[in-house]
């Protein structure tokens, strides 16, 4: 199971890195969105598979809740990942807002054009507004 999941993780990582290296900011945002899944799943997979051998059969272990009587999976990675999911959400929401702000200010989402010299994004705060007002 770990092998299968790690293949999934590898694929998600590859795709998200591909997106992160993209030339447009929307692609980058999608890459950030996706990479969290791979990282979280990776932490979970690295804590071992949730399977146990009962006689000749392999059964899933129980969730990390006391009193079920079954051996449970490690609760710590889950607590860590829960935090990571929440933070990941905050990062994506903030990043997307920045995207909106960037576009509104510069009318540009292509990274190479944004980095080009003379782009309004590099003007000191307020200069863009004045320029737009003048134009």
């Amino acid at each position: 199971m770990t092998l299968l999941v790690s293949i999934c993780i590898g694929v998600i990582f590859a795709v998200s890195f591909y997106l992160l290296m993209g030339k447009e900011l929307k692609e980058v945002a999608m890459g950030v969105f996706l990479i969290g899944h791979a990282a979280n799943l990776g932490i979970l997979a690295m804590s071992g598979q949730p399977l146990m051998v009962v006689g000749s059969l392999v059964e899933p272990k129980g969730p990390p809740i006391l009193g079920t009587g079954r051996p449970m999976v490690d609760p710590l990675p889950q607590a860590l990942i829960l935090t990571a999911i929440v933070i990941g959400f905050a990062v994506v929401a903030f990043l997307l807002t920045l995207l909106v702000a960037t576009y509104r200010r510069t009318h540009e989402l292509w990274i190479d054009d944004l980095a080009a010299e003379g782009n309004p994004a590099f003007l000191i705060d307020g200069a863009t507004e004045r320029k737009n007002a003048a134009a």
Binding site: T2, L3, S6, G10, I12, F13, A14, V15, G42, G48
Partner: peptide, 20 residues
């Protein structure tokens, strides 16, 4: 991207297997 994906996937599989 594929290089990185393979590396990280391998890492997860290796650590996960080691832990088990």
């Amino acid at each position: 991207g594929c290089f990185l994906g393979v590396t990280l996937g391998w890492l997860v599989a290796a650590i996960g297997g080691y832990v088990e």
